[in-house]
């Protein structure tokens, strides 16, 4: 930043309009339409995940109760099926709605898992330093040395794991390292700050320092990263399911739907494009939300 802007800003700060970081971030976000688009999308997706029955009927997704008829196989989008039918004659739109829950759950559980494990270990390693830090940091660089989807491919193809929890377990095990690095760095930074030193000088216990003084500083960036990675994990689940290693039928997710639709893609593209559309929009919504919040929190990027 040039002195010029610093001068202009300090002149501004001296005025009546000075704001806190959080208030300023919120001020930025409120005016950012991308933020609102992502919020609306995520509210919509959450509604679909929580109450799929509001958007579609479950009957249309199964042949057990006669909802899917083979005579409707690969029926094109039209009056009967808004977005077409798949090979089994099931309504692609309804299936996509009912698949949202698995896809989003896997992403959400993995994001929570990696954030909890990574943050906790990062906090301990950064706070206590020394041997435990060296060991944990070494282990981290090993996990970062294995591309996480490839690692998940190895694990899921060699070990028999229950499908939804297996995918969550595999992805969490192989990708907590990013959250670890972030929180560890933030912890080390906060540990050297005057307020932490002051708290220590006043005789605060380790736990209190960690949770009252250090964690609040690390929590913002970790949540932003968790939101972005939520989108990325939803995509990873789809890739694994597409390869046949993720969610197994009869359970269904967008990845499973895409995998099953691929052979019919050239004749009936809607069977693939509809779940792919849901998937892309969902991933995009989380990445956009994470990035707009992260930009708003970073004063360096202010215009």
């Amino acid at each position: 930043m040039s002195d010029l802007q610093v001068e202009a800003q300090s002149a501004q700060a001296a005025g009546p309009e000075s704001r806190t970081v959080a208030a300023d971030a919120w001020y930025q976000l409120r005016r950012n339409w991308v933020f609102w688009v992502s919020v609306v999308l995520i509210v919509g997706i959450s509604a679909i995940v929580l109450f799929p029955g509001l958007f579609a009927s479950e009957e249309a997704t199964t042949s057990l109760t006669g909802g899917c008829q083979l005579e409707d196989s690969l029926e094109a989008p039209g009056d009967k099926f808004l977005l077409g039918a798949d090979q089994q004659g099931c309504d692609v739109y309804s299936l996509s709605i009912y698949s949202a829950r698995t896809s989003v759950s896997v992403g959400l559980l993995t994001a929570i898992g990696t954030t909890l494990i990574g943050s906790l270990l990062g906090l301990l390693a950064g706070f206590y330093g020394g041997k435990s830090d060296s060991v944990l940091s070494g282990v981290t660089s090993i996990f970062l040395g294995l591309p996480f989807v490839l690692g998940a491919v190895v694990l899921l193809s060699s070990v028999d794991l229950p499908d939804i929890w297996g995918v969550v377990f595999a992805l969490t095990l192989l990708s907590w390292a990013t959250a670890f690095r972030l929180v560890r760095a933030k912890t080390i930074e906060a540990k050297g700050q005057d307020y932490t030193l002051a708290a220590r000088a006043l005789g605060a216990k380790d736990l209190r320092i960690m949770f009252r003084h250090i964690l609040p500083n690390a929590i913002g960036p970790s949540i932003v990263v968790a939101v972005i990675s939520l989108g990325i994990f939803i995509g990873a689940e789809a890739t694994l399911s597409y390869l046949g290693l993720g969610i197994q039928p009869p359970n269904t997710s967008w990845g499973v739907m895409i995998s099953e639709a691929q052979n019919a893609f050239f004749t009936a593209p809607w069977v693939l494009m509809v779940p792919a559309g849901f998937l892309t929009v969902t991933v995009l919504a989380f990445i956009l939300l994470g990035e707009t919040v992260s930009d708003a929190l970073d004063p360096k990027l202010r215009k």
Binding site: G138, V139, S141, I142, F143, G145, L146, G151, V154, L155, S157, S158, V159, D160, L161
Partner: peptide, 19 residues
């Protein structure tokens, strides 16, 4: 470390025979 991790994923958590 990474090769150990790969092998760990293959056979420490279960057996390739299970799948």
């Amino acid at each position: 470390g990474v090769t150990f991790l790969v092998y760990f994923l293959v056979s420490a958590l279960g057996s390739p025979l299970d799948t």
